[in-house]
Simulated assay, not measured.
Amino acid sequence: MPPDMQVLIDDLTGSDVAGLLQTHVDHMASLSPPESTHALDLESLRAPDVTFWAVREGGLLLGCGALKEIDPLHGEIKSMHTAQAARGRGVAKAVVETVLAEALRRSYERLSLETGSLAEFEAARNLYLGFGFEYCPPFADYVEDPYSVFMTLRIG
């Protein structure tokens, strides 16, 4: 992670964060039908079982990600998004490292995620594979969906 890049818990009140999350939701909706779009909106990210991080450099928002608790031993990565201008700079890697560290701190046994199956999501899938995530069946409330792939990592 570049030395000036910071990954900090965010309260979801900034207009830049709202704008980036809207970009994320809009992008997901452009790639998948509504029943296959699982991006959380701003209010859902404010739930008590969700921790949200913003990645900034010199005050500029570069990306974001969240951790949702499924149960006391299982968390889910949500709302991973890197601003277009910041892609290729390690923003997503920094978020995954932060979420993984928090999952370990919470003594989770497993960290899972849902991402897209289309070619547009190949970089995301490769990122998670690089951290040791493996493909798995749907978890929590998810169901099989041709637009989704599910991945999990045993931790702790």
Rank of each mutant, 00 (worst) to 15 (best):
L111P: 05
R87C: 08
G14A: 09
A85E: 15
Y142F: 14
R87Y: 13
D26K: 03
G90I: 00
M80N: 01
S112M: 02
I155C: 07
M80V: 04
M1K: 11
E134L: 03
E122N: 10
H38Q: 11
Y147D: 09
S15I: 10
M151Q: 04
K93M: 12
L100R: 08
L111N: 05
A124G: 07
D145S: 09
N126L: 15
E69Y: 10
P72G: 05
A29K: 11
F52I: 03
L21Q: 10
E109Q: 15
V95S: 06
F52T: 02
H74W: 13
T98S: 07
I155W: 10
A66E: 03
D49N: 13
F121S: 04
S30V: 04
I70A: 00
Y142L: 08
H74Y: 10
G63T: 01
T98P: 00
H24Y: 15
L100S: 09
F121W: 10
T13R: 15
A119Q: 14
M28A: 13
S112G: 01
T115N: 06
A29L: 10
T115K: 00
R87K: 15
H27A: 12
G116S: 08
L129E: 14
Q22G: 00
C64D: 09
R110I: 06
R106T: 01
L111Y: 01
D10E: 11
G130D: 11
E43I: 03
F150K: 00
A66N: 01
K78G: 04
K78A: 03
H27R: 12
G63W: 05
E35K: 10
E122S: 07
R106Q: 14
W53N: 01
H27T: 13
E114M: 00
G63A: 01
L31Q: 06
V7T: 07
E114A: 05
L62W: 06
G88P: 01
G63F: 05
V50W: 14
K68L: 12
M5K: 08
